[in-house]
Design a protein around this nucleic acid. Structure first.
Lengths: 149, 149
DNA sequence: TTCATGTATGCGCAATCACGCATATATTTT
DNA sequence: AAAATATATGCGTGATTGCGCATACATGAA
């Protein structure tokens, strides 16, 4: 992946703040961060995909960005990659989590709802259905029906 | 001026948050905002220029952006344009001020110091020296000498 | 070993956006 | 009226960056 400005973390300077805001300036990244901050649980890539209705490579790429600045951590479990909020190790990361926590939750309500439904499909606390699963398609159809009423 | 994404304010949506973070993702804008938030006083363009050591057209342009999203307000006084933090009129603007207020002040210490010295040159509470004034050049030279010790 | 599946990434493109330059506008001073 | 001064802005450019596509990689299943 090409280098991006928001990956450049040295000592704490104004430029680091700028990097932080740049990280939060992408919709997909902000939604992922909010998901991880509010849910306080590790989730795999396909669960994020479904919660956000976002495709695989974008979720993956944005997770990489978040990981590169130390905001999230990855734990591989077989084919699955589990991502969770990292324990903040500097002021900047704490600030970021504070900021994300302070955002109006209503704006992310749909993501949260979908994540809840998606996590309910886990078996033994683990994701087992992967991408494009019929179970999930059905739930999505149901949700869009309710939403359209 | 060409349209920018962060100027597009409708109802409060995630995209508005993105716009907010984009506004804060520029160093000059963030420094201006911090200046206005912490100083709580209206300042003219040339005072900002000197406080930030930034040129005229960039300060002017970024002020325009901040004004366009309702974060700052302008009051013209003859040749001088006085800018101040606008009274926040929605949740997003309040959030922005909160966020800027929460940033580590040390990072903006030099700007704050220069602004303090610059405001001390006012007469009757008004800026009178304009741009490229010898008085200010002298103070800058003094500051850089102290900083280099 | 071959195939299926979850995840990662190189490439090319298009959009965004900050900047320098030059110049325009507005107001005061001479 | 003309010059000076504070501020604003159109234009061209370069840098950044998000995305779609195709494909690579890694691991488990058949």
């Amino acid at each position: 992946m090409r280098d991006c400005a928001y990956m450049n973390m040295k000592k704490m300077e104004i430029d680091d703040l700028i990097g932080l805001f740049k990280v939060l300036s992408d919709k997909t990244r902000l939604r992922i961060m909010h998901l991880l901050v509010t849910s306080q649980t590790g989730v795999c890539v396909c669960e994020i995909m479904d919660a956000l209705s976002e495709n695989q490579y974008n979720v993956s790429r944005h997770l990489r960005v978040l990981k590169s600045v130390g905001l999230v951590q990855e734990k591989r479990l077989g084919k699955w990659a589990n991502y969770a909020l990292a324990k903040p190790e500097n002021q900047l990361q704490r600030l970021c989590i504070e900021i994300v926590s302070s955002l109006p939750k209503e704006l992310f309500a749909l993501d949260a709802l979908r994540l809840e439904k998606r996590l309910a499909l886990r078996v033994n606390g683990k994701c087992v259905i992967g991408v494009k699963s019929p179970e999930w398609q059905k739930i999505v159809a149901q949700l869009s029906q309710e939403g359209g009423s």
